[in-house]
Every structure is written in structure tokens, then in C-alpha cells.
């Protein structure tokens, strides 16, 4: 009788042996490719990317999706998801998406933007695309800091929060106030769905996924412009561990940027 743990094969399964359908309890969506991500540990981008891929896959609309990525940390989003991407210039993703959706009305067209892209350099394009009621979805990653360029102040940086360009903390007289672009979106007649979510817990991840699906369906069904803000972490920019970052977000960001649906004209 062979020893229960005898032989190398029993103790150490090879990768091929391990990845059997019956062993599989979790998998990444097929639309996510194997390119190693450049995102830092603890960053929310990876989770949101995965949710986007899952929703597109579940809706079966890979061939009917055109994605627009921004300048900022998500500039390389086109490397990770096997869908057609256009990398827009800084802040102009909503303009780019507007023409694409009008020229390809049957497609899902969405932008994926950070706070600098949507709420600072591209505020004009964002607000006008929303206000025209472009049938696009806008995924807005708000981590209150410029990650890509190394931790400078963002339009959404909290009062008192320290960054490379407000090293003594954000002050109203020097830097003005955080811009609530999502709250502005609520008041624009062209938006149909505006929501603020997060991906810090399993429950919140599920809610965010539902929100993304809603926004994508709105685009396909020509309901108007949808904005899904995801209040996010930037562990590197905030100079915290991933765990601390989640905690800091919960304690400081959520009170200022409360989660939940802000507008839904379908209801």
C-alpha cells in the first residue's frame, strides 16, 4: 500500500494537475489577459478592471464594446482587458466617447477615468458629455490624489490632506475646495444614473459590479449618461499599507464622499 503522502506527485501537484475544472473555485474573467498589471498592491484599479471584464463577459457584448481609457494610472488599461480600446488625451475621454457612441449607436461605449482626468483637466468635456445626455457610461476612479505622477494634489483631495503639492495639507485659501463632480452630474438633465461606490469589501465589490452593469445597460439602451464613481484607495500615494489605506478611506473619504445611488431615472 502506498503511503498516503508518498511520492512527490501527492505532496506537490504540478500547475497542470492543479488547474482541473473540478479544482477550480475561482477564476479571473476570460477577458482579463495575463499581462502583469502595473498597479501597486492595494490599488482599487485592479478590482474595478476585473468587474468591468466580468460584466462585459456576462452580458456577452465583447464585440459590441468600445472602451476609452484616460491619462493617469489607468492609461495602460488597454493592456489588460481583451476588448477594443482607445487611449484618449488627458481629460478628453468623454469627448472621444461622445463621437464614438454617436457613430456606433448600438455599441456599449464607456470611459474609465481618474479624478485628475475627469474632475480637473477634463471637467469641461465630462460635464458637457453628461449634459448632452451622451449614451455612454463613465467609470470614475476617485482616490483623491494623482497616483501616476507621484502623489500630487487632485481636485478631489480632502481638506487638510497632505500630498506632494500640498505638503502641509490642503487649505482653502491656497488650494480651494474638493470638487464634487459626481454631485454636479446629478443636477445635469442628461444623466440618467449617478452612483458612488467602493471596492473595499466583498459586499461593496458586489454593489459596484451591479452599478457597472446598470451603467452599461443604460449605454446600450440609450437611457442617457451614467456615472459610476468608485471611491478608491491609493496606498502608494497616500503612503500607507493596503490595509491602512482601506481603513483611511473608510474613515476619511466615505464621510466626505458618501456611498450610494445619487440619481436613477429608471426607478
Amino acid at each position: 500500500m502506498a503511503a498516503p503522502f508518498g511520492g512527490r506527485g501527492a505532496l506537490y501537484m504540478t500547475k497542470e494537475e492543479l488547474i482541473q475544472p473540478e479544482n477550480r473555485i475561482y477564476g479571473k474573467p476570460a477577458l482579463m489577459n495575463d499581462t502583469p498589471m502595473h498597479y501597486c498592491p492595494g490599488c482599487s484599479h485592479g478590482v474595478v478592471h476585473k468587474l468591468v471584464a466580468e460584466v462585459i463577459e456576462e452580458m456577452g457584448i465583447e464585440e459590441d464594446t468600445i472602451a476609452i481609457c484616460p491619462v493617469g494610472c489607468a492609461v495602460f488599461a488597454y493592456r489588460y482587458l481583451d476588448i477594443d480600446w482607445i487611449e484618449a488625451s488627458h481629460g478628453r475621454a468623454p469627448a472621444c466617447a461622445s463621437s464614438v457612441k454617436r457613430l456606433w449607436p448600438k455599441k456599449l461605449v464607456f470611459t474609465y477615468q481618474g479624478d485628475g482626468d475627469m474632475a480637473c483637466i477634463g471637467t469641461g468635456e465630462a460635464i458637457h458629455a453628461m449634459n448632452r445626455g451622451e449614451n455612454i457610461a463613465m467609470i470614475f476612479i476617485n482616490n483623491a490624489i494623482y497616483g501616476m505622477t507621484g502623489g500630487q494634489m487632485a481636485p478631489t483631495t480632502l481638506m487638510g490632506m497632505k500630498t506632494a503639492t500640498c505638503p502641509y495639507g490642503r487649505q482653502a485659501d491656497l488650494h480651494g475646495y474638493p470638487l464634487h463632480i459626481t454631485d454636479i452630474a446629478v443636477n445635469l438633465e442628461g444623466t440618467c444614473y449617478v452612483t458612488r461606490q467602493a471596492v473595499n469589501t466583498v459586499a461593496n465589490i458586489r454593489k459596484t459590479k451591479k452599478a457597472i452593469r446598470q451603467a452599461f445597460e443604460n449605454s446600450l439602451n440609450h437611457k442617457g449618461c451614467s456615472v459610476v464613481e468608485v471611491v478608491s484607495t491609493c496606498a502608494s500615494g497616500w503612503k500607507k499599507t493596503p490595509e491602512q489605506a482601506n481603513q483611511w478611506m473608510t474613515e476619511n473619504m466615505f464621510p466626505y464622499y458618501p456611498l450610494g445611488d445619487l440619481k436613477n431615472t429608471n426607478e
Binding site: 482607445i86 484618449a88 478628453r92 469627448a95 472621444c96 461622445s98 464614438v100 454617436r102 457613430l103 468635456e125
Partner: peptide, 21 residues
């Protein structure tokens, strides 16, 4: 499709999106 954009900056980026597709 005819669209009056919000600026020339937006216009050219709309053209960029159109050309890309």
C-alpha cells in the same frame, strides 16, 4: 452625425475617437 462640440479641444478629440473606430 453632426455635433456642435463644447470647444475645439473637444472637437478634435471627437475626431480622434471617430478615426480610431
Amino acid at each position: 452625425v453632426v455635433l456642435q462640440a463644447e470647444s475645439e479641444v473637444a472637437s478634435i478629440n471627437m475626431l480622434y475617437g471617430a478615426g480610431a473606430t
